[in-house]
């Protein structure tokens, strides 16, 4: 697998990251070498093996849908970098 210039642009965009050229080249080389290293997994016979998603002994846990705490808007908003009247504020999306 070659992790090329086009791939890193696509992946960085999916992850909402953006680098200057020199950083991009460095990350590209790093990821490429990591992917070459994980290639060894291709040598394992996994025919008929179910993917292991969780090692928790519990199946789906269900609880009643009830409010356990509330009226803490100001505490929650305290970490917002920008907010207006209890709303999160972001750059204008619609002209």
């Amino acid at each position: 697998m070659s992790f090329n210039e086009q791939t890193i642009k696509t992946i960085a965009n999916l992850a909402r990251l953006k680098f200057p050229k020199e950083d991009e080249a460095k990350f590209m080389a790093d990821i490429d070498s990591i992917l070459n290293w994980v290639e060894q997994l291709k040598g394992v016979d996994v025919t008929g093996i179910e993917p292991l998603v969780s090692v928790s002994p519990r199946e789906n846990a269900i609880r009643s849908d009830v409010v356990t705490e509330g009226n803490i808007q100001s505490e929650l908003m305290a970490n917002a970098p920008e907010s207006v009247q209890g709303f999160y504020e972001v750059p204008r999306m619609v002209e």
């Binding site: 992790f3 791939t7 890193i8 696509t10 992946i11 960085a12 999916l14 992850a15 990251l17 990350f27 990821i31 990591i34 992917l35 994980v38 997994l41 291709k42 394992v44 996994v46 093996i49 179910e50 993917p51 292991l52 998603v53």
Partner: peptide, 25 residues
């Protein structure tokens, strides 16, 4: 970046699902 790549369309089964299968082994 690595995680986004192994979950992306076209690579998910070859990397992520395969890793989960080997995890079971």
């Amino acid at each position: 970046l690595l995680g986004t790549f192994v979950l992306s369309a076209g690579f998910y089964d070859a990397y992520y699902t395969r890793a989960q299968r080997v995890r079971r082994l």
